[in-house]
């Protein structure tokens, strides 16, 4: 009897530099150390039935990341949380676990948007009104074209339709932006791309000194509930 669980975890501190692939390995090993009986795929080359909902760029912290896992037997969600947290390295922490019903779609296929928080140091004095002006001007644009390097080729891409929400607040030398951006297999807006746009529009921010956090993940646009 296979049971499916959804795990919410945080990946913060130095562990934000762990790559997506390495993070999967990290969880696979932590599950084994915690003696949680993970299910394996059938066939010649069995692999653990576990998948992280959506990759997180190296260097970006995740505060409410999601992971799906199938176990060979049923376990209490609290027990999974407890056991895993005993076996996870510094920086990675399980926040919550719940049992899920059989779904048609995997989490990975459902993710479409995510909340981001971007904290930047300002390089000169900055008023709240300036931030609001620049943000609202940016959102008024009907298209925002950015250049992306993929496999050595530079491609242009319009990210405007992928920005669903953006606001900024200045407080003691730090400006914090909250944003809801397209994320997942259906299209991605990279938070750094927003920062570059804001800087180009005149905001005095140091893009190399920013901390980026991802929050809740969302599926279908019609719902405001997160995928948790």
């Amino acid at each position: 009897m296979v049971s499916k669980y959804k795990i919410m975890f945080a990946k913060t501190g130095m562990s934000r530099f762990t790559s997506h692939l390495d993070l999967s390995k990290l969880f696979e090993r932590a599950l084994r150390r915690a003696d949680i009986p993970i299910a394996f795929s059938q066939g010649f080359n069995p692999h653990p039935k576990m998948s992280v909902a959506v990759p997180l760029a190296v260097g970006v912290a995740g505060e409410r990341e999601l992971l799906e896992v199938e176990l060979k037997e049923e376990m209490e969600p609290q027990e999974i949380t407890r056991r895993l947290n005993e076996k996870l390295p510094a920086g990675v922490k399980v926040l919550n676990v719940k049992k899920t019903e059989k779904q048609k779609k995997s989490l990975m296929a459902m993710v479409q948007q995510a909340d981001y928080r971007l904290e930047c140091m300002v390089t000169e004095d900055l008023e709240q009104s300036e931030v609001e002006q620049v943000v609202s001007d940016l959102l008024k644009c009907s298209s925002i074209v950015v250049q992306r390097k993929t496999k050595g080729k530079v491609k242009e891409s319009d990210i405007r339709s992928g920005i669903h929400f953006l606001e900024g607040k200045v407080d003691s030398g730090v400006v914090t932006f909250n944003a809801r951006l397209n994320t997942g297999s259906g299209g991605n807006v990279r938070p750094e791309e927003i920062l570059i746009q804001l800087k180009e529009a005149g905001l005095p921010i140091d893009c190399t000194c920013c901390r980026i956090y991802r929050g809740d993940l969302y599926g279908d646009e019609s719902t405001t509930d997160s995928l948790w």
Binding site: M14, T18, D22, L26, R29, V58, L88, P89, A90, G91
Partner: peptide, 18 residues
């Protein structure tokens, strides 16, 4: 923290492994 995002495989330089 400032330089790590600019290098290949930054996890080489952070420690904290199990």
């Amino acid at each position: 923290e400032k330089i790590l995002p600019q290098v290949q495989k930054p996890a080489r330089y952070i420690g904290g492994e199990w």
